[in-house]
Amino acid sequence: MHLLSRGRARARELWERAVTGLYSMPWVMQLWARWAVQRSQRLDASAAIPFVPFSGPLAQARAALVTTAGIHLPHQPPFDMDDPEGDASYREIPGDVDLRTVVITHKYYDHRDADADPNIVFPLDHFRDLARQGVIGAVNHRHFSFMGHIEGPHLERLIQETGPEVAAKLRADRVDFAFLTPA
């Protein structure tokens, strides 16, 4: 019995690796994007896209990062990988975090490169450097991390609850612009 379940876990691991390997190919990713558009019920092409112009100067602007790459601190609860419809929750990443200590919980993409250098999905080191150089004014004292694979009822929670919650926190922090990165 034990052997059987171990075999199953191994098979699942191999399957997941094969799938994330496929999505590592840009053209597969674009096909997936097209398919995701076709099957989504939530997309309303006529809905107006919100827009506020950026008012400078950039050199005085406070920036915050928001990612859907599934990054979190080791002591924070990992994102829920058992629910096939994802997890709409988020984690606050402190601005002074050492990127070498963050972990990624996200089985829907191959994050070995991001584990080696989190800046490819969460470019905090670069933003700190831009603030030091005076290109931007400051980096916010906190950033926000989601996981990108969100479907079904969790999508509703993202739209109604957790997305607006993060937006309100950014406004409370007087953030001048947000930089968003996918996985």
Binding site: P26, M29, Q30, W32, A33, R34, A36, V37, S40, L43, A45, A47, I49, P50, F51, V52, P53, F54, V66, T67, T68, F146, G148, L155, L158, I159, G163, P164, V166, A167, A168, L170, R171, V175, D176, F177, A178, F179, L180, T181, P182
Partner: peptide, 29 residues
């Protein structure tokens, strides 16, 4: 990610996002 960008922009904060899924980003708006 696009939906989060919309929520942040809707509250009055400008956003800029990276995309690796073109059609989805375009459709989400």
């Amino acid at each position: 990610m696009g939906l989060i960008a919309r929520a942040i922009e809707a509250i009055g904060i400008p956003t800029v996002a990276l995309s690796i899924a073109r059609d989805l980003t375009a459709a989400v708006g």
